[in-house]
């Protein structure tokens, strides 16, 4: 449950989006008033699917790169480059996570158009997702460094 928490959070967000949109359709026929909130809930949930799900994907190394050049280099050089790149990515991703905090705080008083919730709900998804991706990249860098030493 907690070990791969990103998977579960992203799946829960998908369930929320699915239920919101389905209810939006159903409400058109059975409810006294249309579910005007469903599009907004779907949009907020979508951000959580994407950014937290991306972190889950990163854990499983599903984000594809272009290996046309590096694949031609000697193994040791490949590992060295991969280690340096992972370290750089960890820094850049952590910086993006911090920017999400910054804009999230500035958007706390900005309400969403229909439900009047703080817009920062979306930025929080970026913070959670990119923090996790940064930690993952750092973990990769350490693993590669240890592997090169031994």
């Amino acid at each position: 449950m907690f070990r791969n928490w990103e998977d579960n959070v992203a799946a829960a967000a998908l369930a929320v989006v699915f239920l919101a949109v389905s209810w939006g359709v159903l409400a058109r026929y059975v409810a006294p008033r249309p579910a005007v909130w469903s599009g907004e809930v779907a949009s907020l949930g979508f951000a959580w699917i994407v950014f937290v799900g991306a972190a889950a994907g990163a854990r499983q190394h599903l984000h594809i790169g272009v290996d046309l050049v590096t694949a031609r280099l000697p193994g040791a050089v490949q590992r060295g480059i991969a280690c340096a790149v992972s370290l750089f990515l960890a820094l850049a991703l952590a910086y993006i996570a911090w920017l999400a905090v910054k804009i999230g705080i500035q958007s706390l008083n900005r309400p969403t158009p229909v439900l009047r919730l703080p817009s920062s709900i979306t930025h929080a998804a970026v913070f959670v997702g990119f923090s996790s991706m940064a930690v993952g990249a750092l973990r990769d860098a350490i693993t590669l460094y240890r592997g090169a030493k031994s």
């Binding site: 058109r28 249309p34 469903s38």
Partner: peptide
């Protein structure tokens, strides 16, 4: 809503 219509928030 005040006019009695069903407002659907389509994109």
């Amino acid at each position: 809503a005040a006019l009695g219509a069903r407002g659907e928030t389509l994109a």
